[in-house]
Amino acid sequence: MKTLQVTFLLNGFEKTIVSAPNRTLLDVLRDDLNLTGAKDSCGGEGECGACTVIVDDKAINACMILIGQVQGCAVETIEGLAENGQLHPLQRAFVEAGAVQCGYCTPGAILAAKALLLENPHPSDVEIRDGLSGNLCRCTGYVKIVEAVRLAAAEMRHA
């Protein structure tokens, strides 16, 4: 079978993998690299955001891009967010605000929020909702997720 060699930055470290070309970034993360923080929920239709990762500072549905497309890119997953065992302010805020219930949407929502805050460090509630509108959550009704992003944004601005 035809394979592809792809080199990219994964959570700050260079990574080279060999894969069939028709596999998605999500497949490779979950099945080859055992990075299972990114989830599949909608079956790769780009509808749920549970698979959200950050590619070159943009939130991307990992189920929607083929592995070859990340050649040379910087890919960030939820596993790379905490530094030296210290949670990222968004991770802490999600815990503190009670924004985590089943948690299946959580990695994707946190990464979508991170990409949003990179672009807009001072988002209004409406902007938070817009920024995360591609991330479904069935448990929380979103109230506490918005609160968590608001809290983290404030903390990150002051840091």
Partner: peptide, 9 residues
């Protein structure tokens, strides 16, 4: 359980 959920663990 939230600690594990926010880190992908």
């Amino acid at each position: 359980d939230a600690w594990k959920k926010v880190t992908g663990a």
